[in-house]
Nucleic acid binder design. Structure first.
Length: 418
RNA sequence: GGAGAGGUUCCCGAGCGGCCAAAGGGGGCAGACUGUAAAUCUGUUGGUUACACCUUCGAAGGUUCGAAUCCUUCUCUCUCCA
């Protein structure tokens, strides 16, 4: 099998391919242009969206040319695949602004530079709004719509599920538009391969069929396993909500912690999928007697470095080591921690604990803080706060002149007095 | 267009005149146990100047001493028929 293809198989990406032999042969022969679609439904991607783009990274390194297609046009519609409800429609302005931030985020794993390194594929980003928004309805039906059989579409799992609950006509069109995307990319950019999540299988196959009918050309599809955590939780969801890539929505420290806390069974699998470490290096962590926690720490570091940069990864790691390791909470460990600044006068006058905690992310409201204190989970430095009426003043400052608030064992917040 | 069913707290889902800030489950948070894991057990889960008060049961009115519960209008969703 083709080397690049084999890499994806070995790292655990692949679920299915429309034609292994033909695709492998094609990739051996030439640089293949391929694409992945991303829907700009939010202002930030979360890690669950990233799987196809990590795969894109590997293929790009092998010399194939990625197209990251932002669905500025299709986002106006909504894909019924995998959804149980009609998703809300976005305004054109929202879509445009989302597209811009998504491009930036994808830059962390895909190299969009004008002149890539020798041997590395050339990547571009396109937006299907460019060809979808001005489509003429009648022309579209005559050229594209006639190739689609409703009977066939209804047999697709993604539509079947929705028929139970109701499926609007607008969503029913999604497959046609995505197929048209593939056709357009084939015509204008010579794109031969579409990759995507397993939920996209139906849409990808439909696109391949359309190209075969209209252009008499053979294109290919490759789908990835939907990555789920071993506890059944959806990837990218955490108690804090979705694990967004945008540091203002999900801090690099929390991001690091998310990976540091994955289940034992997921550690190796995720190292293969979500880092660029060579497989033989990952294999070291699978050996007998190796502490799983080392693998998790490596995973957290590598993943944070990819998304947020080496500097943030270092900070998050140092902070984590300081807090959970044997080392005392040195000042250098605190940089990566979420921080709040507080005027010295306010502390001098004394602040009720509940108010102090609710000012941080540790508690949402005073009531929330009260529950935390009553439950015995509220700490300042080494002192457990057991009385909700406690007032915090200068005497609580530690040797660094700061307050280190803690909720439970894992959630820290640093208060700097100025 | 016609007939019916329904919109309850983060989610699912009970409640159908006062004992309802609203059962139960899920999820979340905290405690115990641990390895910053999983599983398990316990507590907690609208807000506040907290043994009380305030705001919540699709929206707006109304009936009642008293409404998530009854009436009216509006709105949205689903099912069946055309």
């Amino acid at each position: 099998m083709n080397r690049a293809l084999q890499t994806l198989v070995d790292r655990g990406f692949i679920k299915a391919c429309t034609d292994w032999d033909a695709l492998s042969a094609l990739m051996d022969k030439e640089s293949v242009t391929f694409y992945v679609g991303a829907d700009p439904t939010g202002k930030s991607l979360h890690i669950g969206h990233m799987v196809p783009f990590f795969a894109m990274h590997h293929l790009q390194l092998a010399g194939h040319n990625p197209i990251a297609l932002v669905g500025g046009g299709t986002a106006m519609i909504g894909d019924p695949s995998g959804k149980t409800e009609l998703r809300k429609m976005l305004t054109p302005e929202e879509v445009a602004s989302n597209c811009a931030s998504i491009k930036e985020q994808l830059g962390t794993v895909v190299d969009f530079s004008e002149v890539p390194e020798p041997g590395v594929g050339k990547a571009v980003m396109l937006n299907n709004a460019d060809w979808l928004t001005n489509l003429n309805y009648i022309d579209f039906l005559r050229e594209i719509g006639r190739h689609f059989s409703v009977n066939r579409m209804l047999t697709f799992e993604s539509y079947k599920a929705r028929l139970e609950r109701g499926l609007s006509f607008i969503e029913f069109n999604y497959q046609l538009l995505q197929s048209y995307d593939f056709l357009t990319l084939y015509r204008d950019h010579g794109c031969r391969l579409q990759i995507g999540g397993d939920d996209q299988w139906g849409n990808i196959v439909a696109g391949i069929d359309l190209i075969r009918k209209t252009e008499s050309a053979e294109c290919y599809g490759l789908t990835f396993n939907l990555i789920a955590r071993s506890d059944g939780q959806k990837m990218g969801k955490s108690e804090k909500g979705a694990v967004f890539l945008d540091p203002t929505l999900f801090s690099p420290y929390d991001f690091y912690q998310y990976w540091r806390n994955v289940n034992d069974e997921d550690a190796i699998r995720f190292l293969k999928l979500f880092t660029f470490l060579p497989l033989d290096e990952i294999a070291q962590y699978e050996k007998e007697g190796v502490n799983v926690n080392d693998a998790k720490a490596r995973l957290a570091y590598e993943q944070t470095a990819i998304i947020h940069g080496v500097e943030e990864a270092e900070k998050a790691r140092t902070a984590a080591q300081a807090m959970f390791g044997s080392a005392n909470l040195g000042s250098e460990g605190r940089d990566g921690m979420p921080t709040l600044e507080l005027e010295k006068e306010r502390l001098e006058a004394g602040i009720p604990v509940l108010e102090l905690f609710s000012m941080t992310d540790l508690a949402a409201t005073n009531s929330d803080a009260r529950r935390l204190v009553n439950g015995g989970g509220a700490w300042i430095g080494d002192a457990k706060i057991g009385d909700p009426k406690s007032v915090i003043d200068l005497s609580y400052l530690d040797e660094f002149g700061e307050l280190l608030l803690r909720a439970g064992k894992k959630r820290y917040f640093r208060v700097v007095v100025k």
